[in-house]
Amino acid sequence: MTTTSTTTKATTRAVAVNARTAAARAGLQRGWIEFRQTMTSGQDLWSVMFFPVVTLVVMFLLRHNTVPGTGFSLGSQALPGILGMNVVLNGMMMLALSLTMDREDGTLLRAKATPKGMTGYLVGKVTSRAGTAVIGLLVPLVPAAFLFGGLDLGRPSAWITLVWVVVLGLVAVLPFGAILGSLFGSAQGVGFVTFPMMVLMGISGVFYPISGFPEWLQWVGQAFPLYWLALGLRSAMLPDAMAVAEIGESWRHLETAAMLGLWAVAGILLAPLVLRRMARRQSGSVVKEQQRKAMQQRTT
């Protein structure tokens, strides 16, 4: 009897693992298809590039301003932070928007009705948004390397640092995109996060070294992953001498990895709980009500 029970449990676990594996594989395929569609759509590409294009133009106009205490261009110093902000916008914020729109049009409900469909759906969304975020970083980096002097991208260590910072940064912010998309009932609701994001951008040292802020504001900025993502990108793209403008006059790689890792663990633990809670509330009647409200907002 015990042997039969053990065999049954083992078989059940194996079936569950196979189902999750199949769902993850389908999600990767879906994510790749969505990513290709984004890369071949002029409108989608413009939405990916709009923020970095505007900010790069502004920073180029400020290229003759210098970082206090150095002769280094403020525009070049701000470039890595701008690219880091673009990773957050194209990763976390766009994932949140995609999830809310899929709730409105019933895509999420159809995924919920499929065995392990939510797993495949989330893997697909994370894959497509991660790919878009990486492209949103690399494409502006090419012209920026010619427009902004002082960047130090010729070292192999620079690209190694760039890779691990971007990967860890995406793991840190993408789960919170899923959480935001689960908490807000519409794309307009996610839009309200834009203002806090702009404030966070200002206090995270994206445009100006955070070491020049009051100490209490420095602590606030360092509590969020955007600061550490931008710091890691600066350590990859800028000369080592520019660490003098940072807190502690150091790139603090260990602290960067630790803080982004903490945010990643928190997001990975919280996101499935929030998503499951949101998915349980989805039904045909809820989707119809969301579509009715969306139509009303478009006509008013």
Rank of each mutant, 00 (worst) to 15 (best):
G177S: 12
S186W: 08
I179Q: 09
F192E: 10
A187P: 15
R155C: 03
G149T: 09
S186F: 09
G154K: 00
R155Q: 13
G191Y: 05
P143Y: 08
L162W: 15
F148L: 07
L151Q: 08
S186A: 11
V173P: 04
T161S: 11
D152G: 10
V165N: 04
L170A: 03
L170G: 01
V173A: 05
A144V: 02
G177R: 12
W159Q: 06
A187E: 15
F176K: 14
G191L: 06
A145Q: 12
V190F: 14
V166E: 06
A187F: 15
I160F: 06
V173N: 04
S186I: 09
L183N: 00
F192T: 12
L153S: 09
F192D: 07
S182E: 00
V171P: 01
G149S: 11
V190M: 13
G189I: 03
L153P: 09
T161L: 11
T161Y: 04
L168T: 00
V171C: 09
I160N: 02
I179H: 08
V167Q: 06
G154E: 01
G149C: 06
D152A: 15
V190H: 14
V173Y: 04
G150Q: 02
F146H: 09
L147D: 10
P143S: 08
G189M: 03
L170Q: 01
G181E: 02
G149L: 06
L174D: 03
L180G: 11
V142G: 12
L168F: 00
L162T: 14
G150I: 01
A178S: 10
L180Y: 13
G181F: 02
S157H: 07
I160V: 13
W164V: 01
I179D: 09
L180T: 12
F192A: 12
P143N: 07
F146T: 08
G149K: 10
L174I: 07
A172Y: 07
V190G: 14
G177W: 11
W159I: 04
A187W: 15
D152P: 10
D152T: 14
S157K: 06
G169I: 03
A158E: 01
F146D: 08
S186Y: 08
P156L: 04
L153V: 10
Q188W: 13
V171L: 12
V190P: 13
W159Y: 07
I160K: 02
P156F: 02
W164F: 02
A178I: 08
G154P: 03
S157R: 08
A158F: 00
V171W: 04
P175A: 06
F192W: 12
L180C: 11
W164T: 00
F148C: 05
L174E: 03
R155Y: 03
L151M: 12
P140V: 12
F176R: 15
L170M: 03
L180N: 11
Q188H: 15
S182Q: 00
